[in-house]
Simulated scan of single mutants.
Amino acid sequence: GVGASLVTPDAEQGRAVEWGHLTVRVRGRRCRCGASGCLEAYAGAESLLARWREEGGRVPGGTDEETALSAMLAAAYPSGGEAADPVALAVLEETAEYLGAGLSDLINLFQPERILIGGWAGLRLGTRFLPAVRRHAVSYALRHPAQKVTVELGRLGPDAVTVGAAILPLADFFARGGRRPDPVPASPAPAWRTALAERAPR
């Protein structure tokens, strides 16, 4: 999938946003959410591989998405002297533009200081075409907020979501000054419960 998290100085105001379901193409591909033209229908790992297959690409069978995406990147950007797979290359270049257009929406809406791309697929793809994504993001966004934002790869690796979740209880602990939460005072039992207890056979 394709998601985003908005991080603010006040951690409690940060939130997840359904960025992957912004419309990037009217009457476009059907997304797994049921709508048409979502960013995720063009930039998600599953849809990337589907588009490569539909265009005649040789998607390896019997492998997981991570292995298949690595094969697609290797086909588009071969390390040896062999020719690049033009279908894989075209799909990836188009995806870079869709991602850039999607980032421009975030830039225009939230005017962030920094955008970090993460997740196993984002990091795998970003190492190859981050400059193209940046270029498209700037070209589609409003000039003023686009001049103030940087687009980089995250540094926490593919497990950034897990690391972030693990930090939440620590952040809560430190917000309380390292103290355990105060016990919740017991409230008096409602009258109906007391009455039932008194009528119960002994």
Rank of each mutant, 00 (worst) to 15 (best):
L48H: 03
G122H: 02
T95P: 00
G157I: 01
G102R: 10
L69A: 11
R134F: 00
D64L: 04
A175F: 08
L39W: 05
G56T: 04
G61T: 14
E113I: 04
W120M: 04
R114I: 07
A68K: 01
S36D: 15
R202Q: 12
S104D: 05
A11Y: 09
G1C: 11
A141Y: 04
T67V: 10
Q111E: 12
S70L: 13
A160I: 14
A45W: 07
R51H: 13
P169H: 14
R114E: 15
P183S: 11
W120K: 07
G62Y: 03
K148T: 11
R134H: 09
A68H: 00
W52P: 10
A141C: 02
E198S: 03
P181C: 08
N108G: 06
L196K: 09
L92K: 08
L89C: 08
W52S: 06
D85L: 04
S36E: 13
G154R: 09
L103G: 02
G44F: 03
G178I: 04
D159F: 06
A141P: 02
E55R: 12
F129E: 02
L156P: 02
G102M: 08
L49T: 02
S104Q: 05
K148Q: 14
V133Q: 07
W52N: 02
A141G: 03
E46I: 04
A137F: 07
G1N: 10
F110Y: 15
G14R: 05
P190T: 09
R128T: 13
G62I: 03
P158N: 08
M72L: 14
L142S: 11
F173V: 07
P188T: 12
A146F: 03
L123N: 11
G102T: 08
G56F: 02
L103A: 10
G37I: 11
P9T: 13
E82V: 12
A90H: 11
R25E: 15
V133G: 05
S79P: 07
G100F: 06
A88I: 09
K148E: 12
S47C: 09
P86A: 10
A83W: 00
A96H: 02
A191V: 15
G14E: 09
F110C: 10
V163S: 12
G44E: 03
R15N: 11
W120D: 03
E152L: 14
G119A: 09
L99S: 07
A101N: 00
A186V: 13
Y98V: 01
L103E: 09
F129P: 00
D182W: 12
G80H: 04
V2M: 14
V91N: 11
L69G: 01
D172P: 00
A50D: 05
A4W: 06
A75T: 04
D182S: 11
L103M: 06
E94C: 00
A83L: 12
A195P: 10
V2S: 05
E198D: 15
A101M: 14
D105P: 00
G126H: 08
A146C: 03
A195W: 11
I107P: 04
G34S: 06
C31M: 07
A197V: 07
L130P: 01
D85C: 08
P185G: 11
P183F: 09
V17A: 01
A71D: 11
P158L: 10
C31P: 14
L125Q: 02
E65M: 07
V184F: 06
R128D: 10
A200R: 15
A83Q: 12
D10Y: 03
A68N: 02
R27M: 15
L116G: 05
G80K: 05
R128H: 13
